[in-house]
Amino acid sequence: LETFPLDVLVNTAAEDLPRGVDPSRKENYLSDEDFKAVFGMTRSAFANLPLWKQQNLKKEKGLF
């Protein structure tokens, strides 16, 4: 999966995202380093959170 810089994904409308980016899964296009910096946890820890908590975190970080 291709990764993009944080500033390309945060608070970006679906139509302005790079081609192929799923707007409902912007976090998947962050590098592992950016993911950890944004969410303060690994991808696996994030995946283990309840869906509502994942969505709330994504909203807080501008990735929803």
Rank of each mutant, 00 (worst) to 15 (best):
L1I: 14
L1V: 13
E2K: 13
E2H: 12
E2R: 09
E2I: 15
E2P: 15
T3F: 15
T3C: 09
T3N: 08
F4L: 08
F4S: 03
F4A: 03
F4C: 06
P5R: 03
L6T: 04
L6A: 06
D7T: 09
D7F: 09
V8G: 03
V8R: 12
V8Y: 15
L9W: 01
L9D: 01
L9C: 04
N11P: 05
N11H: 11
N11W: 07
T12S: 12
A13K: 14
A13R: 14
A13D: 09
A13H: 10
E15A: 13
D16Q: 09
L17E: 03
L17G: 04
L17R: 02
P18G: 04
P18V: 03
P18S: 04
R19N: 15
R19E: 15
G20A: 09
G20H: 10
V21F: 07
V21L: 08
V21H: 03
V21Y: 05
D22Y: 03
D22C: 08
D22W: 02
D22I: 06
P23V: 09
P23C: 07
P23D: 06
P23H: 07
S24G: 10
R25F: 11
R25M: 10
K26D: 02
K26N: 02
K26G: 02
K26Y: 04
K26E: 03
E27S: 01
E27C: 04
N28M: 15
L30I: 08
S31D: 07
D32L: 07
D32V: 07
D32Y: 05
E33M: 10
E33D: 13
E33G: 09
D34S: 05
D34N: 05
K36I: 15
K36E: 14
K36D: 12
A37E: 12
A37W: 12
A37M: 13
A37V: 12
A37T: 13
V38C: 11
V38A: 08
F39G: 00
F39A: 00
F39L: 07
G40E: 11
G40L: 09
G40F: 06
G40D: 10
M41I: 08
M41Y: 05
M41Q: 03
T42K: 07
T42D: 14
R43W: 05
R43Y: 07
R43F: 07
A45C: 10
F46E: 00
F46G: 00
A47N: 12
A47I: 10
N48E: 14
N48G: 13
L49Y: 05
L49K: 02
L49N: 01
P50Y: 01
P50D: 08
L51S: 09
L51M: 13
L51C: 14
L51T: 10
W52P: 07
W52A: 09
W52N: 08
K53D: 11
Q54G: 00
Q54T: 01
Q54L: 01
Q54N: 00
Q55R: 12
N56D: 14
N56T: 12
N56W: 12
N56I: 14
L57Y: 05
L57A: 05
K58S: 03
K58V: 04
K58M: 05
K59Q: 09
K59G: 05
K59I: 12
K59E: 09
E60V: 08
E60S: 10
G62Q: 05
G62D: 05
G62R: 04
G62C: 08
G62E: 04
L63R: 02
F64V: 11
F64C: 15
F64G: 15
